[in-house]
């Protein structure tokens, strides 16, 4: 393993999920900005994590870069039908 790799969650699988939207759990966020910094199309994901709003942006590629890189596991893909499914 190359030096430094260990300290980055890059080894974490990128999990693209077109069925979901990136949803923050604000209570976990420390506003470091790694998400915004790594977003390939420049969405300010950190601001979403501050306000608690899901990334509802038609430009979002759901590439999973922000989800994988966040050192605090703040972001997840949430299927909009999660609760409907869970209730069944």
């Amino acid at each position: 393993m190359a030096l430094r790799d260990l300290f980055r969650p890059e080894s974490a699988r990128h999990k693209a999920s077109s069925a979901g939207q990136v949803t923050p759990d604000s209570a976990r966020c420390v506003q470091c900005g790694i998400c915004s910094f790594n977003c390939p199309i420049g969405i300010d994901v950190r601001r979403h994590a501050w306000t608690g709003e899901a990334v509802v942006n038609s430009r979002c590629l759901t590439c999973g870069e922000c989800v994988a890189r966040c050192p605090r596991g703040v972001l997840r893909f949430e299927r909009t039908d999660l609760f409907a499914e869970a209730a069944q």
Binding site: R8, G33, I34, F37
Partner: peptide, 21 residues
């Protein structure tokens, strides 16, 4: 700025100018 983010400034994952929310 993000004080917790200072840790990632040290690792080189973040640049100084990106630590300001």
């Amino acid at each position: 700025y993000s004080r917790p983010g200072l840790a990632y400034y040290l690792t080189g994952e973040m640049m100084e100018k990106n630590l300001f929310p």
